[in-house]
Design a protein around this nucleic acid. Structure first.
Lengths: 292, 292
DNA sequence: TACCTGTCTTTTATCGACAATAGACAGATT
DNA sequence: AATCTGTCTATTGTCGATAAAAGACAGGTA
């Protein structure tokens, strides 16, 4: 079973979505660029489209025969890459409380439970180790350090150092820098969500990540930007896990973001620092509350 | 060829060194603790010692028959673990200038050149990626970002933030904290090396790592301590690579360290910051000089 | 009673194999 | 002349197998 064809299946599904809107398909290289895959995969997709009777395909002549229906799509479980599956599964274990700090992690057991090979698990654990939640004993097992109060405090300490610095750097970006446009776009989404907060408060998680990543990027420092991965993963799963008071929390965070954005626009270092600190403080409190 | 028995060979060699000093061997568990290996490996070592006529071994009765000679040792090439081999080999390529930024990294080619399997290479690259010198294009190759001026500047920026903070925290460690003793020991080695600088200036590299790691540990923050790995590996190979003016550079750094250590002892925040900044500044200059 | 050894099981580290995917090149088409 | 398609090769992602190493447990020995 060497490699799963998840790239193909995922790209196929996205291609079907495209077909729901337009009734024609571009050339192979162009379609590849649109879907972000190689021509090899594009041709596999076209072949499959023909097979299920959605298309006749002869060289440059591609004729769409009908609109795709739900049954044409691959089930979503089959489109996730191995790393996504394993990450989700592993984070659930850690955050759901079934896993105690100090616990040993068994590669083979994990692999069997998730239903993948040991290589995948090993590579995942290595990649995951930079998040500071697990640690390796050489020639022996991994140890779960756990999502503890200390972890949260150490994480937020570094986060605050980095974000304050990045926010200050943001003010010095040239006026025509793309980040300012992105900031406008992000602000607009904030207002949209706030206007319909009761229905859309769960959209905050994704927006939060987009906003803070933009700020961190202003540092132009790969170590600072990379560190944001740690914050992102922790908050991402934290939001999924702890939904108590989510509406209220998110509404408050949205307001803080708006103040923060306004401060960035003012380019006034003092205002920026104040707004940033204010928001970081409540973000930390939120995170800490979820632990005890 | 599943697993190389490098743990066994390395422990065997260290056991021979032990035998050069004492003519008796302790119990299996005790020897295991001394060598840092499991009893399984200890028994393999004892078996081999008997085989080559160094020992008679019957249960608790272990009689050393002769002193080990050079031929008894395993060659050092065989005692390095896979990760050490691959790291050295890879860093040499990057630092020796044979590798241009933007270059693709080919797993199979690397594996063949180093003489190991592809799994080892992949795992190494994943682990190594956190140093910010390479980057993965999913479903495709790794890209070498290179040991460039930008890299050095981004690295030192974060290093300075973290070290200033850690040094400040050092002053607040309780008087009976083990770090103060370690600081004394480190200072003593500094003076020893300075007293014989012409012969021992190359010992500085290891001491440098020991000292700065001690300082970083005072932060009590896993992310700050872990980041020191990045600094350590860069400086480690940098010292090996660039030996021009090494004597002079190291002598200066040793003096700066002594001033830095004195400042830490004073527990005066302002003195600490001054001494720390002074040293970090010349460390950065040294690193940057080696690039252009 | 405390620690040791013999024996056995469990787990990790490493390998090679193979399907999926990317990517290169030459000739075909507009 | 530019872009496309057909075809082929190169490379990655994932698997299961196996020797090395760790570690558990029971019975032996001082």
């Amino acid at each position: 079973m060497a490699k799963q064809n998840t790239v193909f299946k995922d790209a196929f599904n996205r291609c079907l979505k495209l077909l729901e809107q337009t009734a024609s398909l571009p050339s192979e290289p162009e379609l590849g660029a649109t879907l972000g895959v190689s021509r090899t995969t594009v041709r596999a997709i076209l072949g499959r489209l023909e097979e299920v009777g959605l298309l006749t395909w002869d060289k440059r002549r591609k004729i769409v025969l009908r609109k795709p229906v739900a049954a044409d799509y691959f089930p979503t479980e089959e489109t996730d890459s191995l790393s996504e599956i394993i990450e989700r599964s592993f984070m659930r274990r850690i955050l759901d409380g079934g896993a105690q700090p100090g616990m040993q992690i068994n590669e083979l057991e994990l692999a069997r439970e998730i239903g993948i090979g040991t290589t995948g698990v090993r590579e995942f654990l290595i990649r995951f180790s930079r998040f500071g939640l697990i640690e390796k004993r050489p020639n022996s097992h991994w140890v779960l350090k756990g999502f503890t109060r200390e972890f949260a405090l150490e994480l937020t300490e570094v986060r605050e150092i980095f974000e304050l610095r990045s926010a200050a750097a943001f003010a010095h970006l040239p006026k025509d820098h793309a980040a300012w446009q992105e900031l406008d776009a992000i602000e607009a989404v904030h207002r949209e969500i706030l206007a319909d907060i009761d229905n859309r408060y769960l959209d905050f998680s994704e927006l939060d990540e987009r906003f803070h990543l933009l700020v961190h990027r202003a540092s132009r420092n790969r170590f600072i930007v990379d560190f944001y991965d740690v914050i992102a993963i922790v908050f991402h799963y934290h939001y999924q896990w702890n939904k108590t008071n989510a509406r209220q929390r998110n509404a408050r965070a949205l307001e803080e973001h708006l103040a923060y954005i306004a401060a960035l626009r003012s380019r006034d270092p003092i205002e920026i620092e104040l707004a940033c600190r204010q928001h970081l403080k409540s973000a930390r409190e939120t995170l800490l509350q979820s632990i005890n």
